[in-house]
Design a protein around this nucleic acid. Sequence first.
DNA 1: GCCGTTTTCGGCCCGACTGTTTTCAGTCG
Length: 574
Amino acid sequence: MSRNFEIARLFYEMASLLEARNESVFRIRAYQRGAQTLETLGEDVAAVAARGGLTALPGIGRDLAARVDEYLATGRLARLEALRAELPPAFLTLLEIRGLGPRTARALWEQRGVDSIERLEALCRSKEIIGVAGIREKTCENILKGIALWKAGRARGLLPAARAIAVQVGEALRAHGGVERLEIAGSLRRMRETVKDVDLLVTSTEPARVIRTLTSLPSVVEVIAQGPTKASVRHQDGLSIDLRVVEPESFGAALQYFTGSKDHNVRLREIASRRGLRISEYGVFDERTGARVAGATEEEVYATVGLPWIPPELRENQGEIEAAREGRLPALVAVGDLRGDLHAHTEWSDGHHSLERLIAAAEARGYEYVIVSDHSRSLTIAGGLGVDELRTQVAAIRDLQPRFRIRILAGTECDILADGTLDFPDEVLQELDVVLAAVHSRFKQSREEMTARIVRALANPWMNVLAHPTGRLLSSRAPYDVDLEAVFEAAARHGKAVEINASPDRLDLGDTHARRAAALGIPIAISTDTHYLRELEHVELGVAVARRAWLEPAQVLNARPLDALLAWARPGRA
DNA sequence: GCCGTTTTCGGCCCGACTGTTTTCAGTCG
């Protein structure tokens, strides 16, 4: 599905270049919408094109379909190349500077020859950009700040870190008074896997006081913008924090609005507009009379456009509005639906606690079962277990069982070797209750090799769950090159499950892929990959990904009762 | 450039803040 992202990126670029040319905002938006459709498409765009289905996709009409076809056939987009020729190669990079948009960047290129961030910085320092596109002293300073920020890296924060900051800042605002109600909104409320900024929404009778509190917090290093009802600041560890203060009667509308996503909200407003209504963060208003018809709660806002309340995790314009209209929103899986954890380590390999403590902690969480899935022998760096050691561990587990109510499952996180064979022989694997398999080495294999490797592992009759299927680390490592569609096809054919690994740096599978896998009928395991006991709590993150993937309990492997799980994993065993 | 239970033409989501401009453009979300 990598072509989906390639073409989406090209469409986004097209939109930016068109914007620099002052083209119609609607044409620009059309390319952005088309790009968004492609990057969230669960299916390979080439397959859609092959069956002539491109124009059936939302936002893809005759022209965009022709461009997709052109790219698939030739690997090029003539129109884009013509647009690129008008501007410097680094134009897109310039747009990554906060506060610098396509119009200004184009003017800088045409009037001062700005073709790189280095040159932009030099001209800012020498003040030579003053006079272009209404730029004066202040804008010059802001661009320099933007450049400094860009150099520092615009990393999105991991979900738990951002949430911690949001909670901390929220508490500080409350402590200083004036806050009536406070909610976390934005991508944090939608539980996106990474978060670029924290959106806080407050009702208050003293908006100025709350704004002032935020801008003067010790952990705030820069005030980006500050008005009577809105402020935007930079937190000391890089995230920006946006605060909005609204009246209580607008709280629902504001919460809906600031939760997003942008695309979800645009759709909602379009529907409202067809009904003669106007939705803003202040409420829902009758277009003719100007009268407010809703706003205090989110439910009210959705009701005005004939929809039930939609869970925040689904608000990505990925079909949730249609599903809501037709009364087929999923009954999303929740933490309480999970009956056990299917991926956990102990000090037998690279975990930091004993077998007993893991089991006791899982039992204390109220689980019906927990697996012990330490690494296998080839992963020496993680203290992988050899065959004898594994058998000793299984015996230790069987010995411990009578002391616990929770069922302890003997397992392994078995390495998938470079050729796709598993690290333990079949006669060893069949002694276990559940077998996880994962790639931990030779990440640089070609797409063909990696795909064949994983597909072969899935064919092993004793293997059950493919753990962290893409190998990505959100903060540091790209996924390995693999044809996931082929992997899913093999998993479905062999009756295997795939994992949502809830480790905050992995979240692997991610939401889009998990949704695709589940649509193919593949059971999804939501697992913590616990190495420290506190990480059992990461199950919340895994469930968040699952909810964003539209999963219901029936699609989740570890929402099944113990008997059903064992019958699935070892059908031959009594 | 897309789209249609108002429409195949004429619409297309809405508002805050900043810096520059005396009425608004650009950027952001």
